[in-house]
Design a protein around this nucleic acid. Sequence first.
DNA 1: TTTCAATATGCAATCGATTGCAGAAAAATA
DNA 2: TATTTTTCTGCAATCGATTGCATATTGAAA
Lengths: 356, 356
Amino acid sequence: MNRKKRVTIYDIAQKLNVTASTVSRALSNNGYVNETTRQLVLKIAAELNYKRNTLASNLRKGETKTIGVIVPRINQNFFANVIAGIEDSTYQKDYNLIICQSDELHEKEIKCVNTLINQHVDCIVISVSADSYNYDHLQNVIDQGIQLIQFDRVAEELETLKVINDNEQASFEAVCHLIEQGYKKIALLEGPQNLNIFRQRKSGYLKALRKFKIKVNNAYVVENAWTKELGAAATKKLLSLPDAPDAIFASTSDFSALGVLEVANDLHIKVPSQLGICGYSNEAFTEITSPSITTIDQFSVDMGKAIANLYFDEMEKAEASVTPKIISIKPKLIVRGSTIRRGLEENQEIKSQESR
Amino acid sequence: MNRKKRVTIYDIAQKLNVTASTVSRALSNNGYVNETTRQLVLKIAAELNYKRNTLASNLRKGETKTIGVIVPRINQNFFANVIAGIEDSTYQKDYNLIICQSDELHEKEIKCVNTLINQHVDCIVISVSADSYNYDHLQNVIDQGIQLIQFDRVAEELETLKVINDNEQASFEAVCHLIEQGYKKIALLEGPQNLNIFRQRKSGYLKALRKFKIKVNNAYVVENAWTKELGAAATKKLLSLPDAPDAIFASTSDFSALGVLEVANDLHIKVPSQLGICGYSNEAFTEITSPSITTIDQFSVDMGKAIANLYFDEMEKAEASVTPKIISIKPKLIVRGSTIRRGLEENQEIKSQESR
DNA sequence: TTTCAATATGCAATCGATTGCAGAAAAATA
DNA sequence: TATTTTTCTGCAATCGATTGCATATTGAAA
């Protein structure tokens, strides 16, 4: 393709017999410029369809008004929603977003980071990939003088601005709810323990068991069960135990919980009377399954807005906070059909379970 | 925040007592540079943690190796998947992606376009918003010498590269399937007719009715029913007609079809025996509802890959094609429980309908 | 009326990387 | 050995927009 010559401020300057300096001042309305001259500049610029070259102006100004966002997967609902929330806020402030995805790969995450550093973005927002095992590349962001904000999945040893969910509390509440509904043998489907979010969800699970003096059964904790298929496989294993669980908390995702539900249906196990199911993330489908699935809403769009606003607040300060700020979004337990047992039903179903 | 001084090629040049010119040649391995010198440059660059400033190099080189993508909403599954597909391919070619969303607003779409023009992206990929009513801003992209690729929702009067779905054929097949299942009174939930995709879906609907010599009933065509709520409202209206439809093709989205299903359940109308339901887009939930919903898969990730590859193919040509290429992805009808009636059931249910 | 402040414009440098070309040195060829 | 070709480096300009500062003019204040 033959690249057309783009109109520059020199073309406008020539037409008006002024210098590029005057044109620049008129276009940016910065510094002194005569109003009549300014209107002429704007008029010619429009006629010639001039578009500023932000490569040049950003290079000269030393800022890009651009935020780079790195997420594990763009087409995962949680992250797409967070991005939408960030975009809502940054649009108001005339900031640009560059969005990258790591595909849950360490190597790709490093590449994303370097690309954004090279692009001289003003801030990098990141949720780390499952594959990531060291965070030198994030330290590098800080070393280059770029603002770094971590969200959801964070490298805890890096003291940066953070926007997180209170995963432990949400998990704690979910498991307490299960126990209050009469479930006694609660299994946990967990994610990779190198990620903070899954560690915290497990921590909340254990805390709830402790609160109610329920003994921890290690056979009830299954690793890496975060897709529907992995959730289903884990469920088959759990339900074939001699002392099978009576509830499954899929702390990794609603997809995992969906896999649990499908296996329960296949095995003609009644939900919620014989088996309770709780997911995580409040995916759209959790309210349309039969029964609908109890889950945890992470307020992902709000999280995105909090991230953007944290950045803008920090920019407005004369100097950086001594201790980087951490914002914690409180998730909400959404109780639905998959975990609701009533007193009367409870008596009947306990009997039914003993005969299974 | 106090912006740190970034390491530049001049810092490396100084340390090695060579000029920036040599450093540049060494880093890019372009032109002649002594191998020993080159290795020294790379070593010092790594020690100093030098990062190229792509603002500067892109400005000088006159290319950015960046593709700008504008979609109506990032957190809508179809678009998120297309983006994922584009990213898969562009990552292989070391191209950067800048992703913008128009929020279905004309004004915001114009802003996105201008931002990308200013950024000197090499290509703009766009699916137009529902609100868009003229396409001067897209013509402007072409005038600035930037490659423009439209996908899915396109401005038909603009002759550009395009990647589309064969919406008419998919719709035609869906409606034929409904008719073949014995549905005789088929309603259409349509989207805004300024968008090509919805016009084509309606066109396929009409074509199928013509093929089977079924008279078009205008009362069965409902406008702007593209969310779950709007689909539910439209369904209530349709089902209260004296001569209610026996099938509803929600050509706008699966969410709309979900609204139909919920109303049917509320009114104790049996699906598929009394009412057939077909959606569009193969959202994840369509296979988990009861009954699962017949829908159309648009192969969105593949579409994204086709878009990226179209761009790269076009770039490799010595000159632009005389007639811009149009790639048509063939969607697939996914038949599920919501539209399957058997011969025996058909006889029973026709009788049941007459008594309703 | 004189002095000071505000307005306006142009010049030249800057931002950081790239590259055409000149000149020098080394290597290859006649 | 002389000539030609290849390799290497540095200089200077380029990319397009911005901005500090000098200079000139106009307007306001003393």
